[in-house]
Write a protein that binds this DNA or RNA. Structure first.
Lengths: 236, 236
DNA sequence: CCTCTGTATCTTGTATGCATAATGATCTCC
DNA sequence: GGAGATCATTATGCATACAAGATACAGAGG
């Protein structure tokens, strides 16, 4: 055959998503994106009519989300979206810092020129958004950069754990009000992060990422303290 | 009333475990302890008769285990115990190393004298088992020490992630054949670990734990290579 | 008037039944 | 005789029905 076999590997796989898989994805998005507020009850019947499915796949989905730490299930009392406390956030950030630090070390060892170029491009886009004060876009690029560093580390286990934590933390939506000073500092930190990655200085990148996450934590916690905790913002 | 209300809060809560929770725990144990071998199929009907439950709670349990990474579910083809590849193990240990390193730092900052005494006692018991060449007991104490360091760190998120990874790694049952030389080295490393904890030298403890995990990884990987991978040891 | 208890209702937990896709065996064609 | 296709069997995916516990309301007692 003249056709290259690799063509077959590049075609989009036929996604035969079962209902429960689809429900897990949809519900997770709704929780992470804030559509389902922390503390909100998740009555099976209501969700069933909403998604047009029966209770069986829905319940399977809720169990999975519970094991991911996004919802809490009380026996005979149903599922609720978990409240993120300040203590939870304070716990999660050091762990994310450790994971990203490891990712930084591994990335410096494994990343190729194309990977660095990609992250550099994302970085410049992010800085452009910063100068235009486009917070949402800045935040999106910021997230992508961190994800790409994780990806460059080439460790699927590490990526999975980080993604899980990042999803939970993201619900705190701390980006809302960040001071101009902190924003400038964050961009400066990202400059140094990029420099360390380009120089493939693993130790330095690890330390930069750890500190970067620590500063992020301070912003989030200050923000939570300011509006009395994101958990309480349930007013429609 | 002369009775103190606090009396009521101290009684052990009645644990009303639902069937699916019980099934998750039982199946997880069976997988981690090796009763269910890697690659083994998990037919719903057979497990239902075995546990005396219907398919609904069993399926919910399998979904949870799948999200924990212990079983794999293929659409319309059922669940199987996941095969741990050498690459998976090589990925997991650096992550566990990073988590334990963080735990070491936090433990040094948070642990009290009682905690140190407890870990010291466990350490001496472990060393006694070493001198008597009681591998299983040694390994159990070893595991307890690492768990207690995690606990002393006082970070539930960190503990949960570590426990999840430790459970998956434990299935590789690397303790089987460890060289006398490596065993002696491991005990020596534990001596240093205890010393660093007692001195509350967080940086040093972190580095010791990271290296300790790295050495453990080498043993596991050598062991897997020796018998052609634990995954293949399906012969009853 | 307040509190406690009993009951009704609703939600969740579990079992069962039906629909559908995958596996394996048999038959046919080459 | 071997390879491929078709059909039967089996297991999974989903829906529904039944059981049991939790919540809320009402009534009785203090």
């Amino acid at each position: 055959m003249s056709e290259q076999p690799s063509d077959f590997t590049t075609v989009a796989p036929i996604t035969r998503r079962s209902l429960h898989d689809e429900l897990v994805a949809r519900l997770r998005d709704m929780i992470v994106e804030g559509e389902l507020r922390p503390g909100a009850r998740l009555p099976e019947k209501e969700l069933c009519t909403r998604f047009g499915v029966s209770r069986t796949p829905l319940r399977e989905a809720l169990k999975v989300l519970a094991s991911e730490g996004l919802v809490e299930i009380s026996p005979h009392r149903g599922a609720t979206v978990v409240q993120i406390s300040r203590a939870d956030i304070e716990e999660m950030f050091p762990v994310m810092g450790a994971l990203e630090a490891l990712a930084g070390e591994l990335a410096c060892a494994n990343v190729d020129a194309a990977g660095i170029a990609e992250i550099t491009a994302l970085h410049h886009q992010m800085v452009a958004h910063y100068h235009r004060k486009e917070l949402a876009d800045y935040f999106r690029l910021n997230q992508q950069i961190h994800e790409r560093i994780l990806e460059a580390a080439g460790n699927a286990t590490l990526s999975a754990l980080h993604r899980s934590l990042a999803g939970r933390v993201r619900r705190a939506r701390y980006m809302a009000n960040m001071s101009a000073q902190r924003w400038a500092q964050a961009v400066e930190e990202h400059e140094q992060i990029l420099a360390a990655l380009t120089a493939r200085d693993g130790k330095r990148l690890a330390e930069l990422l750890r500190r970067h996450l620590q500063h992020k934590a301070e912003v989030v916690i200050a923000n939570m303290a300011a509006d009395g905790g994101a958990a309480q913002s349930a007013a429609g």
